[in-house]
Design a protein around this nucleic acid. Structure first.
Length: 569
RNA sequence: CGGGACGUGGCGCAGUUUGGUAGCGCGCAGCGUUCGGGACGCUGAGGUCGCGGGUUCAAAUCCCGCCGUCCCGACCA
């Protein structure tokens, strides 16, 4: 491709709206342009990189036995009502109405389409397993698109769905995807970790996230300093706390603590540490009151709580709930919790005693609260948010919190969708049974953004060669020196004949402009052809990833470029 | 959804406090000089100052409403 003909408008200055590196560089280097919040046009360079990513994804999906299909984007709402996701997703859905007044939506994911599709001709167990995938646009009206291509409202996603006869088959299909995902992200050149994660809104059971390590990601994970534990921050658990000595407990004593509805105010008034206090956080789970106990210096991890009660929705108390159910907001303690409520305590609560906690009346707390003497605990569970410095549950090592961008997420769904959708097959015993499903997503644009986050410097992008828009850029560093032009054209042509995706900068611009753009666009290898070199019978080569420069004779220029490309990351 | 900031030629910005002929840099077009790390000179094109309403002799500037974009947060007692 000739840069003189390529629609790749590069920007000399950083766009005002872009703060994170990937957003800034993808705009500046002419890969994408923003149309509106969270919606982007992909320019030729971006299309090339995304196609390369798609190609890797398709090869590995096909190799794992999955088959590509293409499903619609405009979907009728009915199946989404059947699975409950029409309401569950709510505002996240782009909804539209057709001319007949029928409710439609733009697909945010496609279980509701693919399960009925596979079930349509009532397959036999002999037809299973089946794994279908597509690479298609997805629509989610995120309440805050951000970080350029990281969180967008329209995005290209590879989504796959496996259908099995039983759980064992589902686990086999899941493992095949797990393995394929590892190969995909390896091939894309990403530095990533794989963690067991929270199921979130898709629900179901076991699931893993593939997280590219980045500076700016929205998703946090924890990692043991000794390298033996990795988890999504929403699913991570700290090392079990040892129970404290329970002798010589303090008596329960009521304290006057005016104007102390927060832990900070209470700790300040009494001159104690927040961790000596006990928070009693109230939730509603399908009408039942749930009291969650955690030390005052810790936060409740709501996703963990939601998982415990799944599929019953759990929500925090609203102001009205406190009054209706007889609790004093800001002064709630676990004593006197009604019998029909359930009291959950985090394991870390075992490590404390003589708690200071709410007295269940305004402006009063108690000191010396102990279980089971003063309050009951119905269940001990893992309920706290993990934080930097917690101990690893495997070996007690220090846990560190890292940032990442989730580029892939795989789920074991069991019959969560096949059941409500009545997506069944006929089993060996002649009875119709719901499929055991799995679903598997990869964000194509996110891989592109994550790669830029991981591979860039002050000058621009340093593409991993597997997903670079072009392999080699030939920079013609002169305009009016005919022998240089001839040599540059020859090298470009020979590279193309040798199967390399080549780009030649044949524009009428100064050499400095071309060098700057070459570094910005970030092809792995640059071959610089100019008057000085050509008169001396040589070209200059540069490996973008390291900045390493070398020279080759005109005759060996193509081989040298190919060798350098082979050595590129 | 709450809070904050911003909106002025294609891009980046100044001008708004204190109302009075719309500016700068880059880019773009033409000519000339340059020609290996974002060159130089001359000439030139290009703006409903986000939109609507109001105040005023006069509004980019003051007032009201709306729209858009970005950032932070979204219930922890």
């Amino acid at each position: 491709m000739r840069l003189s003909h390529l629609f790749a408008p590069t920007l000399r200055e950083d766009p005002a709206e872009a703060e994170v590196a990937s957003h800034r560089l993808l705009l500046r280097a002419g890969f994408v342009r923003q149309l509106t919040a969270g919606v982007y046009t992909t320019l030729p360079l971006g299309v090339r990189t995304m196609r390369r990513i798609e190609q890797i994804v398709r090869e590995e999906m096909d190799a794992s036995g999955a088959q590509e299909i293409r499903m619609p984007i405009v979907l009728p709402a009915e199946p989404w009502k059947a699975t409950g996701r029409f309401d569950l997703y709510g505002e996240l859905l782009f909804k539209l109405t057709d001319r007949h007044g029928r409710q439609m939506l733009l697909g945010p994911t496609e279980e509701e389409v693919v399960a009925p599709l596979v079930a349509a001709n009532l397959p036999s167990y002999r037809d299973l397993p089946v794994n279908l995938y597509q690479v298609e646009w997805k629509y989610r009206d995120e309440f805050r698109p951000r970080f350029g291509l990281l969180r967008v409202r329209e995005f290209l996603m590879k989504d796959a769905y496996s259908f099995d006869r039983d759980e064992e088959g589902m686990r086999t299909s899941y493992q095949a995807m797990y393995d394929a995902y590892g190969r995909i992200f390896d091939r894309c050149g990403l530095d990533y970790v794989t963690v067991e994660a929270d199921p979130g809104q898709i629900g179901g059971g076991v699931n893993h996230e593939f997280m590219a390590r980045t500076q700016v990601g929205e998703d946090l994970f924890v990692e043991c300093a000794n390298g033996d534990y990795l988890a999504d921050v929403e699913a991570a658990r700290p090392m079990a706390t040892e129970a404290t000595d329970q002798t010589d407990l303090l008596p329960l004593e009521v304290l006057d603590t005016p104007e102390t509805p927060t832990i900070d105010a209470l700790a300040a008034l009494l001159g104690v540490e927040a961790r000596q206090t006990l928070k009693c956080i109230l939730f509603d789970a399908g009408g039942q009151t749930v009291a969650v106990l955690v030390p005052g210096d810790r936060e409740v991890a709501e996703p963990k709580l939601e998982r415990l009660f799944f599929p019953t929705p759990v929500r925090p108390f609203e102001d009205a709930d406190f009054a209706e159910r007889g609790f004093a907001k800001g002064y709630v303690g676990p004593q006197e919790v009604p019998e029909d409520a359930v009291v959950l305590a985090d394991h870390t609560v075992r490590g404390g005693r003589d708690w200071i906690t709410g007295a269940n009346e305004p402006d009063r707390h108690v000191r010396g609260a102990n279980t089971p003497r003063d309050f009951r605990v119905d269940r001990w569970e893992d309920l706290v948010q993990i934080r930097d410095g917690d101990r690893c549950p495997i070996d007690g090592g220090e846990l560190r919190v890292g940032r990442s961008m989730v580029v892939g997420h795989i789920f074991q769904l069991h019959t969560k969708y096949s059941e409500p959708l009545k997506a069944t097959f006929i089993d060996e015993d002649g009875i119709a049974k719901p499929f055991q499903m799995g679903c598997y997503g990869i964000g194509i644009g996110r891989i592109m953004a994550a790669a830029v986050e991981q591979c860039h410097d002050d000058e621009g992008i340093r593409w991993p060669k597997a997903i670079a828009p072009f392999d080699v850029e030939v920079v013609l560093a002169t305009r009016d020196h005919e022998p240089s032009v001839t040599e540059a054209e020859r090298i470009y042509r020979d590279l193309t004949e040798r199967g390399v995706d080549g780009l030649i900068d044949d524009r009428e611009d100064a050499a400095g402009v071309k060098f700057a753009d070459a570094d910005l666009i970030g092809c792995p290898v640059q071959v610089v052809v100019g008057k000085r070199g050509v008169e001396a019978g040589s070209v200059d080569l540069k490996l973008r990833a390291t900045g390493e420069r070398s020279q080759a004779s005109l005759a060996e220029a193509v081989d040298a470029a190919l060798d350098l490309l082979a050595s590129a990351p």
